[in-house]
Computed example of a mutant assay.
Amino acid sequence: MSDITGAILAGGRGMRMGGEDKGLLMLRERPLAEYVIKALKPQVTKLIINANRNRERYAAFGYPVVTDHHDDYPGPLAGMAAALRHAATDWVQCVPCDTPDLPADLVRRLSAALADHQARIALPFDGERIQPLFALIHRSLLPELDADIAAGRLAVGRWMRDHPHVEVDFSDCPEAFANLNTPEELAAHQSCGD
């Protein structure tokens, strides 16, 4: 479990953000994706970014940019499938591009839980709900994921629970999984410290 690809999911339409590309929105003079890169990079051996718009701007961060293989923005599962398809490692740690407070030990805790289970997915549990966009996923699930996306089975949490998984307790830091989905949430976060 020492060789893991980190995948930043920035391929969505940003509908609740007025259609803006969330990973490129500025938080205290830095793009949101930059915070996620800074937090995730020390935890993984490789890093890729899933983006369907502004690919050249994401490429400027210095990491490979991969696009969805599936048409019409089918959602986060398509971004995860793109990451699994292009990863050079067996395990891929997914994280959304709009979570600037990512846990510094996310990968360590998820991978440690997998060492004790025969699971193919590790999911953070924040004390109230699972956080499927932060899944650590084995690349062998790609064929099933592609098939389910093609069939329109797009509910992320349901898809994760339908496969061998382990839920990992992160109830000590539920705020680390907060997405900045709306202009109001982004504005409120502007006043928080780094």
Rank of each mutant, 00 (worst) to 15 (best):
H86W: 13
H70D: 14
A39W: 04
P100M: 01
L27C: 02
A113L: 09
V107M: 01
L123H: 08
V107R: 00
A151E: 14
A122V: 08
I121A: 10
A151P: 08
R129H: 12
F125C: 06
A59P: 07
P74D: 09
I137K: 03
Y58F: 15
T67A: 15
H70S: 14
P103A: 06
C97F: 00
L40A: 06
N52Y: 09
P31Q: 11
A115S: 09
P74I: 07
L142W: 13
P96I: 00
L114G: 10
A151R: 13
R53P: 11
T67G: 14
A82K: 01
L145D: 00
A88L: 12
N54F: 03
L102E: 00
P31T: 07
K38G: 01
T45R: 14
R57E: 12
D90G: 13
C94Y: 11
A135Q: 06
F61G: 08
P124M: 04
P76V: 14
R57I: 04
H86T: 05
G75L: 07
V107N: 07
L32S: 02
Y63A: 01
C94D: 04
R30N: 03
A59D: 11
H138Q: 12
E29I: 01
Q118E: 07
Y73A: 13
P31M: 09
A39E: 01
D116R: 05
D146M: 09
F134A: 02
S140G: 06
P124F: 03
R129C: 10
E34D: 14
A87S: 15
L84N: 03
R28L: 02
P143R: 12
H69E: 13
P42Q: 14
A81E: 13
Q93R: 05
R85G: 10
